[in-house]
Design a protein around this nucleic acid. Sequence first.
DNA 1: CCCCGTGACTTAACCGGTCAAGTACACTCC
DNA 2: GGAGTGTACTTGACCGGTTAAGTCACGGGG
Lengths: 338, 338
Amino acid sequence: MKRPTIADIARRAGVSKGAVSYALNGQPGVSEATRKRILAIAQEIGFNANSAARALSGARARAVGLTLCRPARILGIEPWFMGLISGFEAELGAQSYALTLQVVASPEQEVEVYRRWWGERRIDGVIVTDLRENDVRIPVLQQLQLPAVVIGGSGEAGAVTQIWSDDGGAITEAVRYLVALGHFRIARVSGVPDLLHTQVRTKAFNQVCASLGLTDAVTVPADYTGEEGSRATRRLLIGGDRPTAIIYDNDVMAVAGLAVAQEMGLSVPGDLSIVAWDDSPLCSLVHPPLTALSRDVSGYGAQAARELLNAIDGRRVGNVQAQTAHLTPRGSTAPPRP
Amino acid sequence: MKRPTIADIARRAGVSKGAVSYALNGQPGVSEATRKRILAIAQEIGFNANSAARALSGARARAVGLTLCRPARILGIEPWFMGLISGFEAELGAQSYALTLQVVASPEQEVEVYRRWWGERRIDGVIVTDLRENDVRIPVLQQLQLPAVVIGGSGEAGAVTQIWSDDGGAITEAVRYLVALGHFRIARVSGVPDLLHTQVRTKAFNQVCASLGLTDAVTVPADYTGEEGSRATRRLLIGGDRPTAIIYDNDVMAVAGLAVAQEMGLSVPGDLSIVAWDDSPLCSLVHPPLTALSRDVSGYGAQAARELLNAIDGRRVGNVQAQTAHLTPRGSTAPPRP
DNA sequence: CCCCGTGACTTAACCGGTCAAGTACACTCC
DNA sequence: GGAGTGTACTTGACCGGTTAAGTCACGGGG
């Protein structure tokens, strides 16, 4: 089926291509009557502007890019990204921007993809997640002057727009809550230590534990996968002075930890309290349902997309703080057994 | 930063734009020496062909589209889609095709998105999931002559390329296995009944149960969410003659079912055996780990992407059967207690 | 009556590739 | 020596939009 172009509309309306372009874009230069006639014809023949032609003549590509840098096996089960993506979509769809996705294996590959996308004029901007210390992607974004918004990390991305939430505050709340319940041997299973938000959380965790006099607070690094979550949990629980509460950096590891505890015959929350991060439906799915640090992930995504569209339109906003995760107590936390 | 074009390369190499185009695309018409020189310059200045210009002059957009038609809250936790997506990517990335994503609310919206994408020449083809009976999308795909591959559903999509797996065979295997263990009150919690693969499974389930003389085999429809999975499970377990085994249409509902059983004080697998569909890491994460109908979801996705690229290149292949899901026994199934 | 301003268009260049058709030159062969 | 055949390019049209610049008719003011 031959797809209609503005030339087709022009012919049928008996005007020039230019007039059609003005009419469709709401620009002055055509009378109201002609505009209506042209719009009616466009509607009738199901016209959609060729995005390539539009992009070619200097306009936007009307697409933004997202790279995901986690192994496929983690992506599938990690609710975080899908939550983010559906948030992006809510915002982008409304402005009829498309979202282009690419799964990569390393930050270096991400840089390659950014360069390629930008060179191909395929996208107008990118959303950057999983910020690291001295992230290789930031200088490239600046060099390319590629509009971007960085999720997580406040101030670490130089001049690039950033959106972040106060993870330190959230973890502090979680620790205080556990201490209030009577716990004093609290451990933590963290995500990938290279990631900036992991470091923020670790620092805050150490700080609040120190300030509350919890001397044996320990963080075991893991990688967000269930397997590593199980391994870390096992390591913590077979020790002599085993913790009475564990905080996990995501819900997948928390669920895995719960399974390990059950497998070892420990009761949750009787023998072990569990706090998860990122309250996906997964947390309420298991038994007992997990106490979690909740936040509106898809709202976070929507906000990020909004900021990116701002950045693309040249309205720069330096640094946006999103809602802080708040504690949602459920059945997996209780005072420790005496 | 000004992005380099073939004109820039042409100037530096002292040849015409046309020669550069031939050189970059591996076409005859330039000498080997010139080609090398041009490629070196392209490499040096970091050239990437403008995809809009390329698409405009009749070539491919080098992008394929995927619409996801499930509520955001399900998408996040449903490992199936992310598995598929990472499979697509593995294949598309290798051919440097981009994947464009759109989350929609209804099949009608999906149709709209297809029309828009096609009109905008934004994509070369689409991947269609969640086939329904008399699916409204199929005639539109044919009308637009939009290359497509339909996942799930063999024969129901007319002339469109399809890829499917033998879900009936898989569920038959699961029922036979449970019967061999000694179960005869087997229930099933299904996915959305409108979806074609749900119907295939239901039919096969009823058939094998009838042939094995299981008279009270019942299917409770749900919608793939944890909440519905819990509700359906509760409904099944509070009845008088409660089943000793339940088969779930996805792993999220199976995990929810496990939690309900534990909450009701039933032991799994002692009092209740559980079989999940789509063996994501989630199944091995919980305690006990779930027996599942496994398949290589991301391999399935890769195969679908391959078929789509074939269809785009005009190499039509009618109907491809993917690997049948096979039973992976784990801790959630055992003979029923006498 | 003429000039000027304005609204409603048309014209044509341009974006950055692709590709059919044309050209220039070397080389072979009768 | 001239026709014929390649090879290695160049030229220029074209894809489908956008947009600056140009045209033309009409109306009002001096």
